[in-house]
């Protein structure tokens, strides 16, 4: 009907009398990378759960033209399955075993974990585990990747590395991505569009577009500027749009 891959139309939802989302609308284009940021407890994850179909909103319409998979914060891998078996979950729909093995090998290559196929998740580092989760979610021919703070349990340097890897993986296997995060840097470094939410009940406070190829350097001027604007929108930095040029020269 329309070219919107994902859309939320006038969604409202509450949990036990607490209104989490009020009259929320959002359209996402195919191939777009959208990040949703906002104060903790503002309903970010609920929006993701509504997009995935896990939560049915109290009112409003959800449209989803495609198959979505979720990447969780941590512990999304089945600990009783090896790396290869976890990834194979994402390839269940492929009937031909040879083809399945070939794709599994490709995915292991993509996440640079060749040689770890027989390892169990508890034998891997946090970063390696999240890479396996990504591989599982990117397996096969799904359209949408829903990510719920996928790197927040990792240390800072690993997080930087994972952002870069995610960007490279998406280059090879393009997906429409919705990333929920509280990490402003992550949003500015990865997303085409950052949606800043207000406090509960969640409303869109503003949107920020970043037209810049990925992977992006964290210190790229446009990324830095994006971070500043996001922090300003969240009331965490002063507006310095009038002195921006000077700041960059002097610093």
């Amino acid at each position: 009907m329309n070219d919107k891959l994902l859309c939320l139309d006038d969604i409202s939802h509450s949990f036990g009398g607490v209104e989490v989302i009020r009259r929320f609308s959002l359209d996402i284009e195919p191939g777009e990378f959208v990040a949703i940021v906002g104060p903790s407890g503002c309903g970010k994850t609920t929006i993701l759960n509504i997009l995935s179909g896990f939560v049915r909103p109290a009112s409003g319409r959800v449209g989803c033209e495609g198959r979505a998979r979720m990447v969780y914060q941590h512990d999304g891998l089945f600990p009783w399955l090896t790396v290869a078996e976890n990834i194979a979950l994402g390839l269940r729909h492929i009937g031909d075993p040879a083809e399945r093995d070939r794709q599994a090998a490709d995915l292991l290559e993509l996440i640079r974990l060749r040689g770890f196929e027989g390892h169990y998740p508890h034998q891997l580092s946090g970063g390696m585990r999240q890479r396996v989760e990504l591989a599982r979610a990117l397996a096969g021919d799904t359209d949408i990747l829903l990510m719920d703070e996928p790197f927040s349990a990792l240390d800072y340097l690993t997080r930087l590395r994972m952002r870069r890897e995610l960007a490279l993986m998406l280059e090879e296997r393009p997906r429409t991505v919705v990333l929920v995060t509280h990490d402003i840097e992550e949003a500015a470094q990865l997303a085409d569009r950052v949606i800043v939410l207000s406090d509960r009940p969640a409303r869109i406070r503003c949107e920020l577009r970043l037209d810049l190829a990925r992977p992006r350097d964290l210190t790229h001027p446009e990324v830095v500027d994006g971070i500043h604007r996001l922090l300003f929108e969240l009331g965490l930095e002063e507006d310095r749009s009038d002195v921006r040029g000077d700041v960059f020269v002097d610093a």
């Binding site: 995935s52 896990f54 998979r69 979720m70 969780y72 512990d75 999304g76 089945f78 269940r92 599982r136």
Partner: peptide, 13 residues
């Protein structure tokens, strides 16, 4: 059993 396992199971059919 962590809820996330059932959600993952559902995601993967």
């Amino acid at each position: 059993i962590p809820m996330v396992y059932f959600r993952v199971a559902h995601d993967y059919g």
